[in-house]
Design a protein around this nucleic acid. Structure first.
Lengths: 198, 198
DNA sequence: CAGTGCCTAGACCGGGCTGTATACTGAATC
DNA sequence: GATTCAGTATACAGCCCGGTCTAGGCACTG
């Protein structure tokens, strides 16, 4: 229905486009998703796209940022649940992974996928993906510090490696049960960094 | 009939093509690497390619298997070094990762990259990539068993997650020092599975 | 009413892509 | 010498792509 067309039309078109692009790029990859497909799915004219984005690469870059926001929101939503200790928050990372990877529309980590599709290290899209990874690393490092772990920076690195590893392995093999293994490994690493002996 | 030629030229052309394709697909990705680029680099005529491979997808698939062989060779070469205990072999996995990821021409794991570029789970190329991952998982599981670890299957899964995680994280961020963290995490997990208390 | 701003619809261009068809070369084999 | 066979060179068909251009619709505003 084109009824309530009065408010925020200009930004709405842009967002519509960006949302559709984000979905399709994530689902099918950037290089195999033509602009026409995005336009058709979003129900937007081509000229409108090029009024909002300089080029396709520019759209992909915007989608890259949108990916980051979306994942980050869900990520932190899970971790920041009320009443959790810092250490429980660290483990909640794997609750997030579990829920995410079981979703029907799980196609791995958007940032990793983009970095793979734009392999040159100095490409803006690759760099953006790298920044997002750094962001997550810092986030987990903060959690490790709050949990009072010894050598929080090092432990966080190990935990992130487990997270990224399980993300990509579930993507490739489809074996969701790997998340449980990642969690188990994380538990061991955390316990060790907490000075406990199992 | 046609295989009776003692001349190595006929197979050489195919191998030449496959080797070049493997390099370029790995370096630049499949979807952005046109067939003409492969032909030019290999110095081979187009018709020759289509005499040896049914289609581009077929060439990519062959390259996928070639990737697996090459990585596997180097992988096992490192691990099967003389005089190592089974447990040392497990740690040698990270020597391999260290050397590999520092190489100038390191662009992540070919199998992962292919799985990302062909996201549909039932696509032959995606499936081939998944099989290669399963192969590696079995290999590490064997090592874990030989090392006499408790619950070798579970421990192997955790170690593989660290390996895949560090592969992809170095690819994205370019931070080689992550390999040391992966190794450190692995050491902890192995020690724990060996019944030691650190 | 005239003007303005956002959007649509679709034609169009240049270029790259996979894949095929044709005609030729050169060497080994019979 | 004739045949066979692998490979070469090149042109080309057909398609899709990113990006531009034009003409016009529709709502709001002065």
């Amino acid at each position: 229905m084109s009824g309530t067309t009065t408010d925020t039309q200009s930004t709405s078109r842009r967002d519509q486009l960006l949302e559709t692009a984000t979905e399709l790029f994530y689902r099918n990859g950037c290089h195999t998703t033509g602009i026409d497909k995005v336009l058709a799915e979003a129900g937007v004219a081509k000229m409108t796209l090029y009024k909002h984005f300089k080029s396709k690469d520019n759209l992909v870059l915007a989608a890259c940022e949108r990916f980051h926001e979306k994942v980050r929101e869900e990520f932190e939503e899970t971790v920041n649940e009320e009443g959790l200790t810092a250490r429980e928050r660290l483990e909640a990372l794997f609750d997030f992974m579990d829920r995410w990877s079981r979703r029907e529309e799980f196609w791995g980590c958007p940032s990793i996928n983009l970095a793979v599709q734009y392999p040159e290290h100095d490409h803006p899209i690759h760099q953006a993906a790298a920044e997002h990874k750094q962001f997550r690393m810092d986030y987990v490092t903060d959690l490790a510090e709050q949990a009072g772990l010894s050598n929080p920076r090092e432990t966080a690195r190990q935990l992130v490696l487990l997270i990224e590893g399980v993300t990509v392995m579930v993507q490739v093999t489809g074996d969701h049960s790997l998340v449980a293994s990642a969690r188990e490994g994380a538990r061991t690493l955390i316990a060790r960094a907490a000075g406990e002996r199992s």
